[in-house]
Nucleic acid binder design. Sequence first.
DNA 1: ATCCCGAGGG
DNA 2: CCCTCTGGAT
Length: 248
Amino acid sequence: MKMRVPPAIDHILKSLARLYPRGERPWAHRSDPFRTLIATILSAQTTDAQVDVVTPTLFRRYPSSAALAKARFADVERIIKSVGLYKAKARNIVATAAMIEKDFNGKVPASREEMTRLPGVGRKTANVVLIKSFGVPAMPVDTHVFRVATRIGLATPQAASNARKASNARKASNASNVQLTPLLVEEQLEKIIPRRRLGAAHFWLIHHGRTLCTARSPKCPQCPIAPYCKYALKHHVVPQKTRGSRIV
DNA sequence: ATCCCGAGGG
DNA sequence: CCCTCTGGAT
């Protein structure tokens, strides 16, 4: 229950909290599990702005899984036409609604095991619903979270190696040949970030990845955690004035 | 051109 | 591991 947070982690979280003080949560207005789930499925390879365009119409016409389960693909496709991958998503959300009705008594299942059986629901989507709608500690690891966490050292091959040794001592693996996977990053983040802060940390990491810590040309000179970011140091992008200084 | 809070299939 | 699915914003 009581968890001690390593100083570096604590500093990183505090820096991110200062950087993004509003802590705005995308889709915060959708609190019920069904809408959170559907909106999250729709969000793949699409901007959240695009999701916001189609969800009002979608949920007006299909306010519940019972309603959506009976929808025709063509009707749903027409409504969500402007989001990417809309054909697969139309199929998936209708099939998901049908499965919720048929196998889960009309309610979105509250476990990752059950949720990932739903068509179009992978581990990342399930984790979003778990932490947003069910209050279950889970870190959704998408490309942004993965990139940021590995860059700044919140997730490391060393820690992954240790975790793997602990859980499976039979496999003798050293840190150098452990490749970080989204699952390993998730496990590490859930271990080192206090449960209370997981939701906020998720937002900070993902928002950081979209703004400063981008894939192509990261804005390290503007980044407050660059002074103790391994990626920034390695690529010589730490500003002169803060290089070598202590963690702020 | 490149990217967007991925998932499923080969 | 790879590939495909997709429209819209920049």
